[in-house]
Every structure is written in C-alpha cells, then in structure tokens.
C-alpha cells in the first residue's frame, strides 16, 4: 500500500469539510426533515404524510399549485423576454465597428449589480400612483389610458414583477452571448460573406446556430435562478406576496411556511417538504438540460 500523501488531504480538507457540513449535509437533512412532523413538541416520523398534505389537502394544495403556477409563469416571461432581449443586445454590441460598445455594456449591466431590495423599492416608487412618475411619462407619449397600479392588481402584479426582474438581469444573458459571439472565428463569417450571407441573415444562419450552447446554459441558469427566487417578491410585496397571493412563488411560499407570518406559526417540517418539492423541480430541470439538451447540442459546437 502506498503511503498516504498527507498534503493532498490537507489541501482538500477545508473545502470538503465546509462544503459538506454547511451545504450537502443540510440539504439531505432538510429532505429527511420533510418526513417528520411535530406532535406535542416531539419529532415523529410520518413518512410521506407531509407531501400528501402538500399535494392533496385542499388548503395546502391550492397554495402549492398557485405558487408553482406563478413560478412557471415567472420563468416563461424570463425565457420569452429577458433572453431574446439579451441576445439582441449582444448581437448589436458585438458588431465589429460599433463605437462606445464598452460604455453601453457597462451601463446596461448596472441593474444586475443592484440588490433586490433596491430594485424592488425603486420600481415600487416609480410605478406608484401616488408619486405619479409612470402615469406622467405615459401621458407625455399619449398613452396615459394604459396606466394602472400594476403592482396592486391581481391580474398584472406577477407579470410586472417578472418584467422588473427581467430589467434587472438582462445583463447576464447579454454578457454570456456577447462572449460567445466574439469567439466565433472570423474565417467562418468571411466564408459566409463570400456566399453572400451578410448582416441579418448571417446572424440567423451562421451565428445563432453557433451560440445555441450558450443559450442552453443561459436557459438552465434562468431556470434554477427563477425556481429559487424569493428576494424581489419579498422586497416588493412582502412575505404575503400580495395582492391575495397572486405573486406567491415557491420561495416565498417556503419562507412563509417554515418561518411563519402574522398569526401562523412556522412549521419547519412542511417547509422542508416544500424545499423537497423545489429540489425535485430543479433536479428535473438540470437533468433535462444535461442529458436531453446539452448532449444533443454538442454537434453544433466548433
């Protein structure tokens, strides 16, 4: 048996210990806690009971499906609005003879570095009918009739928040796609030019297929980020995710359940069950990406 090379152990130990103790162990412990419940201040094993309550008990299941549905819509808006805008901005920015590209890039990225608290409140103020910035500005372009207290209306609040989040994070797809576009070899584009493919058609026919892997990465990052979102909704609408839970997503639902709010006591076991649900959803998404999309996309890679 070869001697143990202690330096390897010393190099690995701190990272592995912290990561295992603070991330992996609590993750599995949370999944385990989902199988317990508290009766008369003692923890008892109840198996899948919490999940049955979550999915089939009318009070819980309405809330759960509401949060899941809202979360899905939140994700759909990001995919349909944030990522296309990001790609479009990157396509324009990557134009070889564009001046001030670095300046635009840095400016457009600024919202991404702000905290959700700032973003949530700033937009709340701007959209507030009391302050009146939004109605005044719409009035200036003759569209005042479009104004409504968007964050206060059940039918608009979630979409508005999703768009605010899009505003905040559009910088990330922009940067990643920009990098991917710059890495396309010049020869390929020149070869296209010889065949008469330039401008917009060069984008659709040559560049877009080549940046598909980056779009895949952005989609999965968006997916994981959205299904684990919490801060913006909490900052703008509070833990109750109003009006009438219309902006409740899985993150706020889990927070309310496990931490408690107003008169309802916190229930760590039901909270864990919701966390288990979120874990399953994220895992499914990541697996679909890794095995379904990424492996198939390799073919286009250079």
């Amino acid at each position: 048996m070869p001697p143990i090379r202690w330096h390897i152990v010393v190099f690995l130990a701190p990272a592995v210990l912290v990561y295992s103790a603070v991330m992996i162990f609590p993750l599995f412990n949370t999944l385990r806690l989902a199988l317990y419940s508290e009766v008369d201040q003692t923890r008892i094993f109840v198996g899948m009971e919490n999940f049955r309550t979550l999915f089939f008990d009318p009070i819980w299941s309405t809330q759960f499906w509401n949060a899941l549905g809202n979360n899905l819509w939140f994700f759909v808006i990001h995919m349909l609005v944030q990522n296309p805008i990001g790609v479009a901005l990157a396509a324009v920015l990557s134009h070889p003879r564009l001046r001030f590209a670095a300046l635009y890039r840095s400016a457009i990225f600024i919202p991404t570095i702000l905290s959700f608290v700032i973003v949530g409140f700033a937009w709340k103020l701007i959209l507030s009918p009391i302050w009146g910035i939004a109605p005044t500005m719409l009035d200036a372009v003759g569209l005042k009739f479009l104004f409504a207290p968007w964050l206060g209306k059940e039918e608009y609040a979630l979409t508005t928040l999703a768009l605010i989040s899009v505003w905040q994070f559009v910088g990330i797809p922009m940067m990643l796609i920009y990098a991917a576009l710059l890495s396309i070899p010049e020869e390929i584009l020149e070869a296209g030019e010889v065949d008469g493919i330039t401008g917009t058609s060069a984008f659709w026919k040559i560049k877009l297929p080549l940046i598909l892997p980056s779009i895949g990465i952005i989609s999965i990052l968006t997916f994981v980020g959205n299904f684990n979102a919490f801060d913006l909704i909490y900052a703008a609408q509070g833990a109750l995710a109003g009006p009438d839970f219309s902006t409740d997503i899985l993150g706020t639902f889990m927070y309310r359940t496990f931490f408690g709010f107003q008169l309802q006591l916190g229930d760590p076991h039901m909270g864990s069950a919701i966390a288990g649900g979120m874990f399953a959803i994220i895992l499914i998404g990541v697996c679909i990406y890794l095995f379904g999309i990424q492996t198939r996309m390799r073919r286009y890679q250079l």
């Binding site: 603070v22 991330m23 162990f25 609590p26 993750l27 412990n29 949370t30 806690l33 999965i220 994981v224 684990n228 919490f230 993150g251 889990m254 496990f258 760590p268 909270g271 864990s272 966390a275 979120m278 874990f279 994220i282 895992l283 990541v286």
Partner: peptide, 10 residues
C-alpha cells in the same frame, strides 16, 4: 447547479 437555499431549514 443546486442552490444552497433548499437546505435552509436544516
């Protein structure tokens, strides 16, 4: 890929 928030309760 797995957010640490999932383990918050524990």
């Amino acid at each position: 890929m797995i957010p640490i928030r999932i383990g918050t309760v524990a």
